[in-house]
Amino acid sequence: MQDAFYLAGMFSNDVRPVGAVPRLPLGAFESLPRAYRTQRMVVAAMASLVLMTGAGIMVWLSLSDDVVPRWAGFGAALAGTLIVGWGVLLADRGYKRMGFLLREHDLTFQRGWLIRTQVTVPLARIQHSEVHRTPLDRWLGLSTLRIYTAGSSGANLSIPGLQAETAHALRTAILQDGTTD
């Protein structure tokens, strides 16, 4: 009897996934353009240059003068090298972990290597957005998209290193959702 019901398609009781809500696909994030890695490296290199100049002066002073002891010079050189190495590592790893994901109703950005954060903003909650470009950005053809939600005093989500057309496309998507709601 029961089987007949099932076969006739009059009744079904399929397994339904509990909490059937769309999941954030963790593997589908879009990475940032390679030029942004270059930009991070340039910034790290400039900082390193300043740091290494300082360390170089210390080494030179410790070798040529009695004012600065020998160990301080070598200590400065070692510390400088370590910090520069760490900065370059961060610039690379930080870039690798960055990515964004635009869905129909929200925008997600993930960043951070030691401390990883993943921020999702529903498009309907965005108050305004702006595209920001520094001279270095312009030279590499990049821009930063900043997104503001209500009650904030600074940007709540800022996606750096986007190509101009990507930034524009993201903005268009945000604006469209804002007008249809």
Binding site: W113, I115, R116, Q118, P122, R125, G151
Partner: peptide, 26 residues
């Protein structure tokens, strides 16, 4: 809620632990 943030340090990531921060306008 107007912003959802999932945050974890890398040692948390290894152990499958995460913080969830729900931002409202206040």
């Amino acid at each position: 809620v107007q912003r959802v943030e999932v945050r974890q340090a890398f040692w948390h990531a290894h152990r499958g632990i995460a913080h969830l921060i729900l931002h409202t306008a206040a």
